[in-house]
Design a protein around this nucleic acid. Structure first.
Lengths: 229, 229
DNA sequence: GTCTATAAGATGATAGAC
DNA sequence: GTCTATCATCTTATAGAC
């Protein structure tokens, strides 16, 4: 590694920065299968050998591009996240976020990293880092919004954060092959968010009723499960 | 390692059948990036040239393997699907299905097809076919279970089917990089299913209240959105 | 149908001139 | 830091013997 680490803080027109940008574009447009050192270099308008000079391997360049995209996105949306005060508003933010990320291609990029993780440990590391960063952020917001609503005790915020993230990934992959189906999925997610929001807005009496009911149901299911085993 | 049991309507030990099985295994183990004609042929114990003789291209072999896996899985689970009478039971079936599909690798396989769809039209066709087949099946079950519950009018079954399918894909991809996070997501999905089940089990009075409340909320949000625009 | 051999090209990565 | 040129290897796919 003859060069300094993936410096995203470098001049916007430096060769490393150009390569990072080009790598992101190529992966989003043709997927991991269509990505190569030559394709990225050509897009960046530089020589192919510079990838290895600056990043060591192609995978490490892809990792740097992943890190840069994640931090840029989170910085961009942190304000909107912090401004959301209800689940419904959060879903609205999520929708706008998804629309933006889609045009930028970040979710696609992450999906490609995840699929490449199966055969490339460097991409696996990039994907894991992206997951941790995103779900930590999502969880932070969910913790605040669900805070002391009736759902707080019923749903695990950490699991929900992962579920939401995984849902985004899945929907984006879905969108590659079936845009209409993906759109329908997003619409449904939005209507569910609205529904849950109503639920979260119930008065204390209804809350207690719901909680009692859920607990009873849970116990029943568990008993049934134990018996049938 | 259990076989995917992709019965390609040919003798189970014919070369095409062996290739289909081998293709499935290789993609699941090393991902699309690590998959090649040679890798598949070696796994099948036959010569590489036979892939092109029997299937034309590697992509078409992968497509055949996808189709075989999907139909085999759906056949295997149709009975369990039809036996589920509540959302909670459906989630239980889904969980057992996911456990099985994970060891077999079908969801992983589909995720890889989806990610490859971005640069390969044949894989895109395979992925699209898989999506249509699965979401049609899921929708059929959801239509029956949500039937005339209070959620029937509030959530679009088609969108929900796609959302569930996309969720599975996302979770499986997630699992490659972060197994703990994926497990937490599945747990949360299960608890949500239980919660919704309770909701779906409410009496008519509560139903009307919920519906009125949801409608009101929807109108409000729409008005807010119109105003702010 | 199955094999060997090989074509024709793309790939990651390196050496060395400037 | 950036380039040209190149290597060794891998890829899909085909030709032709059996």
């Amino acid at each position: 590694m003859p060069s300094p680490a993936p410096d995203a803080s470098a001049p916007a027109d430096s060769t490393p920065a150009r390569l990072v940008r080009a790598a992101h574009e190529v992966v989003c447009e043709v997927g991991l299968a269509g990505t190569s050192a030559r394709a990225i270099a050509q897009r960046a308008g530089v020589n192919q050998a510079l990838i290895f000079y600056h990043f060591g391997t192609v995978s490490e360049l892809l990792e740097a591009a992943s890190d840069a995209a994640i931090t840029a996105s989170i910085d961009h949306y942190r304000a909107a996240f912090d401004g959301a005060d209800s689940l419904d508003e959060l879903v609205a933010v999520a929708r706008s976020l998804q629309a933006r990320e889609r045009t930028i291609g970040n979710v696609t990029y992450m999906a490609q990293m995840l699929s490449g993780a199966q055969s490339d440990p460097v991409l696996a590391r990039a994907a894991r880092s992206a997951i941790v960063t995103w779900s930590t952020e999502v969880r932070r917001v969910l913790d605040r919004i669900l805070g002391n609503g009736p759902l707080a005790g019923l749903v695990d915020p950490r699991g929900l954060a992962h579920l939401v993230s995984a849902g985004f990934i899945g929907i984006e992959l879905y969108d590659i092959a079936d845009p209409d189906g993906a759109a329908a999925a997003v619409d449904t997610l939005e209507s569910i968010g609205r529904l849950v929001d109503v639920l979260d807005d119930l008065g204390p009496v209804a809350r207690r009723a719901l909680k009692a009911r859920t607990d009873r149901s849970t116990r029943t299911k568990l008993r049934q499960r134990t018996v049938t085993r």
